[in-house]
Design a protein around this nucleic acid. Sequence first.
DNA 1: CCACAAATGATAACGATTTGCATTTAGATT
DNA 2: AATCTAAATGCAAATCGTTATCATTTGTGG
Lengths: 220, 220
Amino acid sequence: MRRILLIEQKIESGFDFGKKLNDLGYEICIVNDAFQALVHLESQLFDLVLVDLAIPKMDSFWLLVARKCHTPVITLANTNDVLEKLNAFEMGADDYLSKPFNIRELQLRMNVIKRRGKLTENAIRQTIIEFDDTEYSLTCSGHKITLTNTEYRLFKYLYERQGEVVTKEELQQRVLHKKLGKFDRNLDMHISNTRKKLADRNLSRDLINTVRGQGYSFNF
Amino acid sequence: MRRILLIEQKIESGFDFGKKLNDLGYEICIVNDAFQALVHLESQLFDLVLVDLAIPKMDSFWLLVARKCHTPVITLANTNDVLEKLNAFEMGADDYLSKPFNIRELQLRMNVIKRRGKLTENAIRQTIIEFDDTEYSLTCSGHKITLTNTEYRLFKYLYERQGEVVTKEELQQRVLHKKLGKFDRNLDMHISNTRKKLADRNLSRDLINTVRGQGYSFNF
DNA sequence: CCACAAATGATAACGATTTGCATTTAGATT
DNA sequence: AATCTAAATGCAAATCGTTATCATTTGTGG
C-alpha cells in the first residue's frame, strides 16, 4: 500500500494530514473535487482512495470511478453520525472513519482492506499491539516490552507495514537515517535484540520475519 | 548550480527532459507531487526548483517550502498565457518559461538567477559550507570537520534554516525522533560537542547560536 | 548430496548518545 | 546594582548503537 489519493474539500487541512502520511512512507496526492479525482484515478494507479464526506455532491460518482479502477475507498466524516456511516457503506465504501482519528487507526483499517483484498475476507486480527511512543514500550496480549528508541521505531515501522516485506535500504534510510553500507549489520543487530526481548516475554520472535535477500516483514 | 528538483505531473515526460539536463551535467531529481517535493526539499539541498504549472492546486504550497529552503524556483507552463505568467511571479517564482522551450534558454535563465543569487549571497554571507552526507563531514572556509551522524544531521538541519530559530521540540522530533522531556539535555550535549569540534578547527562556535528559552539558530 | 557463496545470527568491543548532577549564565525583580 | 530564578552548560557515568568477527543457516550449481 503506497500511493494514496486524498480527496479533501479544504486543501489546506489536507496538507498536514497528508504530510503525516507522507512521513510514514506513503505517497500522497491531494485533490479537492470529484473531477480532479476522476482525472487522477484514470491516469495513475492508486492503492487507496480517502474521501472526505464533506465533498459536496458527486457522493457516489468518484466511488464508481474508484470501483472501476479496483481501488479501495475509505470515507472520512466530520461527524459521528450513524446515518452518514450507513450511507457510506451503502455507497460502497470499504470502510469508514470519523474525524478526528488516529493515523494508526487509519493504518490498521488500510491493512485490513489490503488483506481482505488479497486473502478474500479472512479472519479479523485479534492480536493487537499497543504502542507507547513516550517510553518506547509495546503491549501485546498482556505482555509489555520496553525497547530502545531505535528498536521501537524499527518495530513500529515494520508493524505499520504488516504483511509487506520492507527492504533494509528503506529501514536504514527512513529509520536509521543513514545509507546502507555493503557489510552493514546494524539493522540485523537491532532486529536480533528486539527478537530476544520478544522471546524473553514469551512472545514469538517470528513476529519479525526475515526474508532472505530482501528485508524483514512483520507478521502475526 | 548542480542539483535540480523537477516537479512534473507526468513523471514520464519529466524523464527525457530530466535526461537532457542530466547530460548537461546537472543532477536531477524528479517528483510528481507537492508532498514528495516537500520531503525532498526538506531532506536535501537543491540549487533550483523547476515546477510544471500543470501540477494541480498546491500552486503556492511548494513555493512556500522552496522559499523556506532558500531555493530559487522557475515555473514551467504549457501555454503562453500572460495571465499564467503574471500569476507565477505573483506566487513568488524567480522566473518563468513556457513549454516547449529550448534547454539553452533554461540554462540562460538559470545563470541569471544564479548570478542574482550569488550577488545577494555575497552581500549576506561569503562563507559557504559543503556537506558530505556519506561521512558526516563538512568543509567551511578550508576547514574540514567530521561529526557524528546525529551531530551532522542536527547541524545540517539548523544550516538549512539559517537565520530562523529552530525550537528544541522541533529538533528533538525531526532529528532525534523522540519527544522533548522536561529535563532533556541531549540536544544541548550534541550542540556543545559540535561547537567544541568547530572551535578545534578555528571556526566560530557561534555558528550555532543559542536563543535562550526558544532554541538554536544557525548564523554566519 | 556436497561444496561453496551469500545472507543472517550472535557475542563482544568500541564509539556515540543520553542521563543525572553540579555549575554557570542571562534575564527578571527588587 | 544585588538578588533570584529558570535556562543553559560541563562533565562523568550509564545506556544504547555500531562495527568487527566468527558461527550458522540458506540457497545454488555441480
